[in-house]
Amino acid sequence: MNDMRIAERNVDTNESKISARKVQVYYGTNHALKDVDVDILDKTVTAFIGPSGCGKSTFLRCLNRMNDTVASARVEGTITLDGENIYDAKVDPVQLRAKVGMVFQKPNPFPKSIYDNIAYGPKIHGLTRSKSELDGIVETSLKKAALWNEVKDRLDSPGTGLSGGQQQRLCIARAIATQPEVLLMDEPCSALDPIATAQVEELIDELRSQFSVVIVTHSMQQAARVSQRTAFFHLGNLVEYGETGQIFTNPKDPRTESYITGRIG
């Protein structure tokens, strides 16, 4: 635990971006998430940790209503983004997801060129009026994702031809190309080797300056390394939520402590 870079971190801002109140999720009759209250801060990396099946990914997918695509899922409670309830009947999930981007566990580049992968989001959301603007977005996004130097000479080659780590950074670049305000990451490094993981983690740290980042991870070390705030989920409950340093060094709940010290999970 000593090697974790916890002490160096301070929380930059306290402005709340997303607030969840009394969120319940059911898959059919299975009550998967119970009474979750969370405030996610802007320009912060928030980590969700917990044993598998604890509901952390489920909650993440509530934040941009990806659970809508699962027929049996039902969400109750309120989640607000900048004060607007995202589960309001008037909200179009399409518009929501433009604001709340998502990166998935397994790199999932479209079977298109690298350029088209990045340009996909801006195109469907009508973010550009000209080819040169689009070129600009592609370049900026790739640069922000620290991928530009590796792929700038082969933007026309298929995105599926990249290495696993590159593919995941491509997916991150794709997500930031739509200029979201929040970036959700569902175990983004679980399919990557240690070197690629380090690159992605470094990237996440840089993204913090522009977005609010929420990351689900099964690795406590990763949570400790990249996040400022951490939420611990267990059996569908949010057990403890607070500053990362506090969670890892001085957990208040005994369940958190057991998990951190490796007794459950």
Binding site: V91, L96, K99, I137, Q210
Partner: peptide
């Protein structure tokens, strides 16, 4: 394009 926060309200299409 730098910041998305000026984007319109979610409640208005």
């Amino acid at each position: 394009p730098a910041s998305g926060s000026h984007r319109g309200s979610l409640l208005v299409q």
